[in-house]
Design a binder for these strands. Structure first.
Lengths: 202, 202, 202, 202
DNA sequence: AATGAATGAGTGTTCATTCAT
DNA sequence: GATGAATGAACACTCATTCAT
């Protein structure tokens, strides 16, 4: 009587454990032993389900990216007015960075640092960033169109918005104590609204 | 006849070498051997001049922070008009993130990630961030005062500006290939100018 | 209704798979997983049919030795004249070493190396070698008797012949590229014929 | 005051220790720990002097090959008559296989097995074999020339002689107990002498 | 000040073996 | 009989740190 495969569930547990450990220890110090312990599994099992530690990391990046995508759709899909959609998204996203899900945020920051030095990680990270950029640009373009403005600068505005968000995540994780409380979502919204207002009519 | 004490020079060389290696390898992979090689020194010498590897890192953080401070003063000190000062600073700072000094930028990003997990690094990193925040707030306040506006929101505006800058550094290092060219300095200036314009008269 | 006991068939499949993997990977790198994959079986099944990995190896050694024995009888049994029998055997055996069955030959070479360090393997390996030595000695003795020579040196001549053959197998597997083509069977036959001619009349 | 390099001496010690351990344990079971223990060194030191375990092995192969070369020249260089040279060489070489230097012989056999599966080892092993083949062919050709025979078959004869020798090494290591005593050098000499006698006049 | 060999704990990874199903 | 997940001890290799010179 064969044992039924549970690989997918185990993989998810392991990826989750990596996120958890990475948030406080970084990738290098997130040892296989530490991940296994966090997941309540035997160390050897991690290499049964993943070929390498890097594969766990890549899996985490795509998981978080997918999670972001779904979250985007959830938040934004519930509203009609483009401006409401933008505002809802920025608030939801940046409240995360300021306390609601610090583990996810810190893990994401660590992933950014790993992307600098691991080509394979960089690849999936860049895909996620490019995707987020597209989503933001669409969101902004919709607002601008409603305001009867040219949408040509939407992508560049979106880039600034994304930088502001990612920077807020980094600072929340690494220097949260010295930053003003709740500045980020307001700054993002302000940047978006005012920037769009300066776009020429289209 | 005493030997010439060249400790300070050696320390600077070593710190510089750490920055160089860290930019591409990260902190953990910046091994003592690799740093020594980059500095053209014998490995054993590093522990003669520094108690530990972490001490080199802390030294690098303060060096970069001081460098940023001096650069701030240089750039900004040469102008009279507050708005010109602000504009000059943002451009100088963000052009760095987009190609001019990628090594410094990448090393700084890595330091941010290390600050998340090493308390001692976090301490000096936060000090540097707090300092930059103060400088930016002062710069903005001066502009706002000239515009006869209330300066009460200067610090919060500065926080958003700092987040945008740090985010731009991170994205330049980790996902430069997928970001629009030259978006950052424009976004920062736009954010600063427009934000200040919405501040109430004071 | 009892299940069909297919243990013997399964064991043979597994032993065959070990031979196949061992030929290119050696014994240590012939992992249970790799053997299972080569056999198209689940890894756990191997330890159902064999107590340990070494038991599979021992089984392979005896299988190959038996195979050699049967092959000997087949080849040699079909001829009448002792000299023809000898010649047929050497050709058949050494053509193997030079391309016809490189997998079997390489596996046999690996087994020789394992025999050096595993007592249990050495035991069965030595039995196989001793047996081959006996067979060869008989073959030579028959030739010598026909030539009316003393057969006292048959065993020693056989030992040289066996060494030549085993050496040819080793060199075919490890350095086939640098050896002359088809030298082995000729060398063996030459050695045998000429050696016997120098034996004193008996 | 700098410490003076002792790398070459240490490397030789380590290579020697690998030979020693490999003779009884094989390459895979010759763990870094075991080699270090045999050399009386700390395990970490082995990777200070060698990049990898395989590099130690490659170093051993070339060391043994060089040793064989020098030994060849020593043995053979001391005699004038080609036949005496050949005879001296075969005796010296094969006595080794039968007791005088079992460690070297067993290590060499293990190396042959590793050459089957490691391309880099195979390369240096083949070079050593090719070299030995050349030397033997030269030795045989000199004898044949003295006997006023055609030397065209010298290389093929040498190949058989080499196979006989390598086979004798293998059997001495893996099945010494069942082989006749002292058969090898006689068989080799007999093979060489008789084979040459059948070569056509040249 | 400077060198580079030496140490040993720790890393990711492999793997024979076991076992619940 | 058969499956494939699970275990844990081993492995090669890395590395900050120490130290004799």
């Amino acid at each position: 009587m064969p044992r039924k495969p549970n690989t997918e569930a185990r993989r998810a547990e392991i990826v989750q454990a990596l996120q958890s450990v990475m948030a406080t220890q970084g990738y290098e110090k997130a040892t296989i032993q530490a991940i296994a312990k966090a997941a309540g599994l035997a160390p050897g099992l991690l290499h049964y389900h993943f070929k390498s530690k890097q594969e766990i990391l890549v899996s985490l990046v795509t998981t978080l990216a997918d999670f972001g995508q779904r979250r985007f759709e959830q938040i934004v899909g519930s509203a009609d007015d483009p401006m409401q959609r933008l505002s809802a998204y920025l608030e939801a996203r940046l409240e995360l960075g300021e306390g609601a899900a610090p583990e996810v945020v810190a893990a994401w920051v660590m992933i950014g640092a790993e992307a600098v030095r691991q080509a394979e990680v960089r690849e999936v990270y860049q895909r996620a960033i490019a995707n987020e950029l597209d989503l933001l640009a669409d969101l902004l373009a919709a607002c601008m169109q409603r305001q009867q403005r040219a949408t040509g600068s939407a992508r560049e505005l979106a880039a600034g918005l994304l930088a502001l968000m990612e920077g807020a995540f980094l600072l929340a994780s690494a220097a949260g104590a010295v930053m003003p409380v709740g500045y980020a979502s307001q700054a993002a919204l302000r940047y978006a609204v005012l920037s769009m207002e300066t776009a020429p009519p289209g």
